[in-house]
């Protein structure tokens, strides 16, 4: 209790990087705002708001795999990430959001290349955070894997901020092309400040097999009824592991505990101020 109060006081006296305000509006420049929000917030509310940041910046949390942890490397990486974020705005986005990414490309006429697509996966932590964008261009599915902190990225813009029903949308590879076709000249859609991120409950239709994966075994929410012979469902039921969601320690080992998360958020905040 004493420790948290100390951190609270320390933060109050410094300028606070209000990521949410800066990046929701998709501005190209990150700026330091000194807001009164944190000062007014009660300590409980303050704790809660910090817990919510994990959805916006999952890559700031360290690797849950204990073998791959290294405190010094994590600290240096966080510092580099903050430094990169002070150069370009990396906005808040989720799997299912539509993004436009501009990268440097020495071979293109304007020395830069822009790709618009739907984010189908986010992975990796620290400086190795990546995301995959997918679009269908000239009747061909295109996917680009971007490293989030790649210095050749010039601009990341969120055109539509929304979530889908699943954590990964890799099944769009086997869905009809209309579900992953997006206009490259799309205008950004604005959201009301402070509004919750909308969840798009669209259910896509898969093409007939063969697929890149056995989607019938993945318990997908965002897919229309899959038409498959009975034997596929029998096999899927056989290999299903419905008890795994009750394995408390497996869940624990995949996450970073709340107390630790708070510590890392505090540290990265401190780094960005100094």
């Amino acid at each position: 209790m004493i420790n948290t109060t100390k951190n609270f006081v320390k933060l109050k006296t410094f300028k606070v990087f209000n990521f949410r305000n800066v990046y929701r509006s998709c501005s190209t420049e990150a700026s330091l705002n000194n807001t009164n929000e944190e000062e007014n917030a009660t300590q409980e509310g303050f704790k809660k708001s910090f817990a919510e940041y994990r959805h916006i910046y999952p890559e700031f949390l360290p690797d849950p795999e204990v073998k791959l942890r290294n405190v010094i490397r994590e600290k240096l990486e966080r510092k580099d990430m903050i430094a990169r974020r002070s150069q370009i705005a990396i906005p808040e986005f989720y799997v299912g959001s539509i993004l436009s990414v501009t990268t440097s490309d020495p071979h293109s006429p304007g020395k830069s290349e822009t790709f618009v697509g739907i984010c189908i996966k986010r992975e990796g932590c620290g400086l190795r955070a990546k995301f995959i964008l997918r679009n269908v261009i000239d009747h061909e599915g295109i996917e680009v894997l971007y490293e989030m902190y790649d210095p050749t990225i010039q601009k990341i813009k969120v055109l539509r901020l929304e979530k889908r029903l699943d954590d990964e949308l890799l099944y769009l590879r086997d869905a009809l092309p209309e579900y992953s076709t997006f206009d490259p000249n799309m205008e950004p859609e604005l959201l009301v400040e402070g509004a919750p991120v909308p969840v798009n409950s669209l259910k896509v239709k898969l093409k007939p097999r063969p697929w890149v994966d056995r989607w019938e075994r993945k318990n997908l929410q965002g897919v229309q009824d899959i038409d498959l012979p009975e034997r596929f469902w029998v096999k899927a039921a056989k290999v299903a592991t419905p008890w795994e969601k009750y394995d408390l320690m497996k869940i624990y080992k995949k996450t970073i505990p709340a107390e630790e998360q708070r510590k890392y958020t505090m540290k990265s905040n401190h780094n960005c101020k100094s």
Binding site: D63, E123, T241, E244, I251, K254, T255, P257
Partner: peptide, 30 residues
């Protein structure tokens, strides 16, 4: 490199957590 699962928020345990979970052989499997 994995990303931490952020869908659940858990408290830190105040005991030593084993790096690997034991298997406990059983005819019913896991």
């Amino acid at each position: 490199m994995n990303q931490a699962d952020v869908s659940k928020l858990v408290s830190k345990l105040n005991i030593k957590v084993n790096p690997r979970l034991r298997k406990f052989r059983s005819p019913q499997g896991p």
